[in-house]
Structures are given as structure tokens and as C-alpha cells.
Simulated scan of single mutants.
Amino acid sequence: MKITALLHKHVLIGGGSGFIGRNLSKLLKSKNYEVTVVSRMPGTNRITWLDIQSKGIPEKITSVVNLAGQNVLDPKRRWTPGFKQNVWNSRVNSTRILAEEIIKSKRNLDAFINISGVSLYKPSSSKTYNENHLGESFDFMSKLCIEWEKAATIPENENCRSIKLRTGVVLGPGGGMIESIWMPFVFGLGGPMGNGDQYLPWIHMDDLCNLILYCIENKNVKGILNGVAPQIVTNGEFSKIFASCLKRPALIPFPEFAVKLIFGKDRSALLLTGAKIEPKLTIESGFKYGFPIVKGACEDIIKKVRGK
């Protein structure tokens, strides 16, 4: 597939200071891209959401990536109506702002890439989903994903490719799920969430960042792609593999009632349920995974955390 050759490459990243944004910025800069982050506070190579609304997409920008979103699984935050609204607004409203400003700009942009989730695929023990499944609204998280993608929609005749990446759990050092489970597993106290039978759609951080770069640079890539690894595993299978790579047991499950007590009904669904998802169109687009198997992903992450 032909790679776009750009003399000037400058990516605007909404939510670029988060877990994925930090890693993506590092990759882009290593490939000679300039990066500007949209955040709540101004600073060097930063602009605010208010700047975007009042001044539009800066002239120098060639692609836009949106990663913005309040951390849903922050155990320190109670699932209050206010926090629930923040989770919604930080995804849907920020996405809508970028989409509307891209449409207003009337300039040629290479790509608008919006990261959303896989919660719109209803958990099923028999069905395997790919990008051709539209998804359905069956709980708060699925409704959020659907509205999130609607907000990212720009007309097909706009001078900008639109890519919607539905990502699973992002595995990498320094944040996300690995940071949350690291200490219990290191001390031999780790195990699956609930009974562990639920599927765990996942992707290595390096693969997600490289997939975003691939979408920016390949003119033929557009539409919906599943940002998940090819290997389908359950939460229990992942727990055993991760523990094995640490040379630890995985004997102590985190009880379902405790998950629900800490996170509440809406959020606990992210941990206690999951769908079988394959990246059919992602693979067909020509993208090559660096970490298609969870064992290799875990080994790489553990090595990076330990600095070896």
C-alpha cells in the first residue's frame, strides 16, 4: 500500500497528555512529525479546547488524532451522576468539537482519527465480531461508544479521511491495566476478574501507536478499524499468561461482588464482561502487528518495566 510522502507533517492530538498520547507523541516525533497537544491548560506545543473553538484547527496541522476522555476506571472516583457526565462529555463533546472544526476549516487534512471503544459489541459466548458489525446500544458504555462515533462523523466528501479506531484494553508500561495489576501479580496475589471467563480484547501500546501512524500515512485506509490484537483470550487466560511471564502464580481471583462494589454496575461491566473481537479489516488493510500474541506482549512489557 502506498505511503504518503509529506514534506511537512504536523499532528494535532486531542488528549495528548494521557497514557496513549504520551506514547504516540514519542513515536511521531521519532518519525520527524511535529506534535501539538490539545489540553485543558496552555503551554509549549499545547493549545486549549477553547483555542480550537475560537480559532479553529491551526493552519500548520496536517492530521488530527483524538484520544480525549476521562479515565473511566479510576478507582478513586465514585460513579456519581457528575462523574458519569464528565466521562460522557470528555469523549463525545471533545470529539464533536474537533469534527465540527475540521468541517469548518475547508482545508485538506490527511486524516481525522478518533479512538473509541469496543463496548458496543454485546458480550456473547458464541459470536465473534469484526468491523462489519455496527454494534448495538444495550448499556451505558455501549451507548457512549455509539454516540462517540456519531460525534466523530464527518461527511465523506470532506477533504479528510475519517478513521474510527475501536480499541480494546491497551497494554503497556507506565499506565493503564498493567500499572493497576502490577503489584498484586508481582507479589503472587494476582488472578482473573470474577470467574475469568469473559473475553478480554487487548492491544499492545506499540501496536496501537503504530496503527495510528499507519492510518495517518496510508491514503487508502478509512472507516472503522478494530484496534485489537489478533489473538482472542479470556481474562482468565490473560491472567495465567501474565503471571507465568512474571514467574508467579495466578490463583487469587478478584471477586465479582468486590468489582461491583468498587466500580458500580456501569463500570464493572468493562471488567466482568467482554466480547470476542477480531481485527478483520485492520489485517486486510495491510497493517502488521508487532505483538499479535499475548505472551509476547507480556514478555515485552515486563522487560520494559524492569528496565532490562
Rank of each mutant, 00 (worst) to 15 (best):
N220D: 13
I3S: 10
G14M: 06
K222C: 13
V65K: 01
L24E: 10
Q231E: 15
Y199F: 15
G188W: 14
L12A: 02
E284F: 10
L246F: 01
G18K: 10
I115L: 15
L67R: 00
G15F: 05
E278G: 00
P253L: 12
D51L: 01
N89Y: 01
I252D: 04
H204C: 08
W202F: 09
F291G: 02
L272M: 05
L24I: 09
C245L: 05
V186C: 11
P173T: 08
N235K: 04
D266T: 06
L272P: 03
E131D: 06
I97H: 04
D197T: 10
G236L: 09
R22K: 15
S180G: 05
K76H: 12
I163Q: 07
S239V: 07
Q70T: 11
I212S: 09
V87R: 01
E284A: 15
L270W: 09
V259H: 02
T234G: 05
R166E: 01
M41Q: 06
Q198S: 14
I57M: 07
E136I: 13
F185Q: 07
H8T: 12
K60V: 08
L27E: 08
R161I: 12
S285W: 03
L208Q: 03
I241P: 12
A99T: 03
G168R: 07
E217A: 04
R161P: 11
E34A: 14
L171S: 04
L270T: 10
T80F: 07
G14Q: 05
I262D: 05
E256R: 15
T4Y: 13
E256P: 07
V170L: 08
K222R: 14
V11L: 11
V65G: 03
G56Y: 08
N108M: 10
S39E: 13
G264H: 06
T62R: 10
L208M: 06
R166C: 03
Y289E: 02
Y121P: 12
F263P: 04
F254Y: 11
E278W: 02
K29S: 13
V35Y: 12
P201D: 05
F19Y: 14
E278C: 00
T48W: 03
K276V: 02
E299T: 08
K2G: 05
T44E: 13
L73M: 14
C245R: 12
P230N: 09
N157H: 15
G307H: 12
H8K: 14
L144F: 12
E284C: 09
N89R: 14
P81C: 06
L213W: 08
V64M: 11
F242Y: 15
K106V: 01
F291M: 01
A151F: 11
Q53F: 00
T128S: 04
V294L: 12
L27N: 09
S124V: 11
K280I: 08
I61S: 08
T234K: 10
V64R: 03
E147I: 01
N114V: 08
G135E: 09
C215G: 10
G274Y: 05
G290N: 14
L24S: 09
P81F: 04
I20P: 00
R77Y: 00
S25K: 13
L98Q: 03
V170M: 07
